[in-house]
Simulated assay, not measured.
Amino acid sequence: MDSKRTSAHLSNASTDFTQSIEDDPLIDGPLISQDALESAIKREFQKLPTTWIAGLLTVAHVAYVSVSIVLAILCWLTDDHSAECKTVLNGVDAQTVVLLGKAGLWVLMFAFERCVDHHHSAARRRGYLQFYRTTRDLKRLPLLIHSAGNAAVLVVIAPSPLLDKKVKNLSVYLLLVIICVELLLTLICLLIYTVRVVRFNAQRPSPDISEEERSHAYSTNASSNHTETGFRDGSSLEEVVEKQADLIEYLKQHNTLLSKRILSLTSQQIRD
């Protein structure tokens, strides 16, 4: 009698287990192929649209410096064209126009830095950590240069009567030197930045973690250009911690997307 009860109990347990397997869509459904999963989570490369912004900023900067030099020569240093200058400028002093243009150019530099930082932060969230770090300081330099230039202009304009007493129009010459030096340094920074972004868009690289995994798959020696996630001799601990934080943030977003894709593909296979 006991053997019959035991046999019946095992039979019921086996039936329940079989039913639970049949009711579980993750076990009963077909396995998701790796190719389908990779194609589902693979993101299309997004180019950085900041090169044309840098180009427009360069044109605006060159135009400002050119207009400032013309105004200084025709309307500021000499009085030969004072009547024409008043007519063109609607009675506004040439010095005021140059200084207002300088302030407006700083606003453009600030807007450029904010716009570029937005796009670079988005690239960092997509996993391009190395590119973000290599261009982080470069994209800030134009704004820093013009901020320092504004401070230098204040130092020159404030004591301009005293400077002009010693040397005629000395403050004007110093102002022109400042804006020309700003133009030179800013053009160098924007040119280097544009070259790096164009190269990045042309290479269309995969996220850093994918590049590192691919490198380890085909080579035993990791390249020094790949993302460093551990501490090495001579490494800055602060830099290593920052790299790890960026990598962890990217992997969390990647895992979240992966989980959503798995659930989506699983439910799609169940319906099919």
Rank of each mutant, 00 (worst) to 15 (best):
R124Y: 01
A217N: 11
I270N: 10
V98A: 07
T266W: 00
T220W: 01
D35E: 14
V181F: 07
L144D: 08
P159N: 08
V97N: 02
S68H: 10
F112N: 08
L71F: 11
L56R: 12
L263A: 13
I69W: 03
S210Y: 07
T51M: 10
L170C: 15
L258I: 00
A54H: 08
F112R: 10
L265W: 02
W106S: 08
S210N: 10
I262P: 02
F110A: 12
T58M: 03
K47R: 12
H61C: 06
T135K: 04
K260E: 10
E249L: 05
V155W: 04
D2V: 12
N90C: 04
E211A: 14
V177F: 09
E113W: 03
V167Q: 09
I73E: 08
V67M: 14
R126I: 06
V88N: 01
E212D: 05
T18Y: 05
V65W: 05
S66I: 09
A111D: 09
E242I: 01
L57V: 06
V240K: 04
H216I: 02
I41N: 05
M1Y: 12
K165L: 06
V98S: 04
R232F: 05
V195N: 07
N255Q: 07
H216R: 14
Q46D: 11
T87S: 10
L257R: 12
P161T: 08
L99N: 06
S259M: 03
F17G: 00
A152S: 09
S14G: 13
S267G: 01
R126E: 14
V59M: 05
L26P: 00
Q244I: 02
I41C: 13
E242Y: 02
N150E: 04
Y132A: 11
H216M: 09
L175T: 12
G55P: 00
L251S: 08
D24E: 13
A152M: 08
K260Y: 00
D2L: 13
V153N: 04
K139N: 08
T186V: 13
V195W: 03
V107P: 01
E38A: 03
Y218A: 10
W76R: 08
S82D: 13
T96F: 02
E212H: 09
Y193E: 15
L184M: 11
W76Q: 14
K102I: 00
A152F: 01
T87E: 13
Q269I: 08
A202E: 09
D117I: 00
V67C: 11
F131Q: 09
S33M: 04
V155H: 02
S147G: 15
F131D: 10
H254K: 13
S206I: 00
N201H: 14
A40L: 04
P161N: 11
E213R: 15
L187K: 02
P25G: 02
I21F: 14
T186M: 06
V153E: 08
N201G: 02
A72I: 07
D23E: 14
E182M: 13
L247S: 06
F112P: 03
S20V: 09
V59P: 01
A63S: 15
T135Q: 13
